[in-house]
Simulated scan of single mutants.
Amino acid sequence: MPTPSPETLDFLLTRRSRPAKTLQVPAPDRDALMPLLRAAARTPDHGKLEPWRFIVLEAGAMPRLASAVEACGTALGKSAEDIAKARAQFDQGHLAVAVIEVQKPSEKIPAIEMTYSAGAVCLALLNAALAAGWGANWLSGWPSHDRGFCQEALGLADHERVAGFIHIATETNAPPDRPRPDLTTVTEWVSA
């Protein structure tokens, strides 16, 4: 018979991301962040490849990244609205962890499995931050998918890409819950 952990299940059933724009200082310092990174690193990694890594973006890096978004967006011909929206996560951010997907050569593990693992790391880090009492949000946006931005602003190699920016700081207010999927429409039971 399994040993239940009702507190953990309750957390998972009620967890809710906090809008990044509502997160304020303080943000976790390096000592407070390390257990969250350790928790995220326990994600299944499909063949022990560790197909991801972390780049911790502290407050001092945020203005540089916001400027890089603006320069990249201007060069790409993005609208002022698209640039402002993409800049906002760095203009308003206090600390974010860029989870970087790292594609590694493998004859046994398909590339898509490495992508899944990097996404799982994002969710694990988000949940670890929330469980530790911080406000947290998983963001991406067009800059995270732009090779130029990723290489110039984050120093990513050709075999790397951003899986997500996990913003972590102090929540200022708990948002209301949002509608959740109707499980009867997304669940199929197969018994034979």
Rank of each mutant, 00 (worst) to 15 (best):
W134E: 04
A132L: 05
D10E: 12
T172Q: 13
V25L: 15
V69F: 05
V56P: 08
H159L: 06
D91P: 05
F90M: 03
L57A: 01
L123N: 13
H159W: 12
E152D: 15
P6S: 08
P176K: 15
V99E: 00
D82T: 05
M1Q: 15
L23F: 02
A98N: 09
G155E: 01
M1Y: 13
A96D: 03
A41F: 07
C72F: 03
H167Y: 06
K104R: 15
A163V: 01
C150A: 10
R18I: 13
R15Q: 14
D177A: 15
L154K: 07
T3I: 11
A153W: 00
S5Q: 14
P51L: 02
R147G: 06
P181I: 06
V121F: 03
L139C: 11
D177V: 12
E188F: 10
Q89G: 04
V25P: 13
K104N: 12
K78N: 08
I112F: 05
A136V: 06
P6L: 06
A132N: 01
G148S: 11
P179W: 00
Q89T: 10
C122Q: 03
D182Y: 06
A111F: 15
A118F: 01
E152I: 13
G60E: 15
T8N: 14
V121G: 00
F165M: 02
A169S: 07
S17W: 04
G164H: 04
T184V: 12
R18S: 10
D31A: 15
V69D: 05
F165V: 06
L183M: 14
F11A: 07
C72K: 04
T8P: 07
A66S: 09
E107H: 11
F149H: 02
F165L: 09
T43P: 03
T43I: 06
W189S: 05
A174G: 08
E50W: 09
T74A: 13
P51C: 04
R178F: 13
P176M: 15
T22A: 13
L125M: 04
T14Q: 12
R53I: 07
E188D: 14
R30D: 09
G77A: 04
E7S: 12
A40H: 02
L156V: 08
F11I: 09
G73A: 00
V99N: 00
Q24E: 13
L13P: 10
Q103K: 15
G164V: 03
F165W: 09
E70N: 08
E58G: 11
A88F: 09
Q24I: 13
S106N: 03
P110C: 04
L76F: 07
L126I: 05
P26F: 06
D82H: 11
H94M: 07
A40K: 01
A192D: 15
H159T: 09
E58I: 11
G119E: 01
W134G: 04
R180N: 04
S79E: 07
A120D: 06
C72W: 02
P181C: 09
P105W: 09
W134F: 12
A20W: 07
L156S: 03
I100C: 03
A131N: 10
H94D: 00
H46E: 09
F90E: 01
P181V: 10
E171C: 08
L12C: 08
G164D: 01
L37H: 00
E107T: 14
E188N: 14
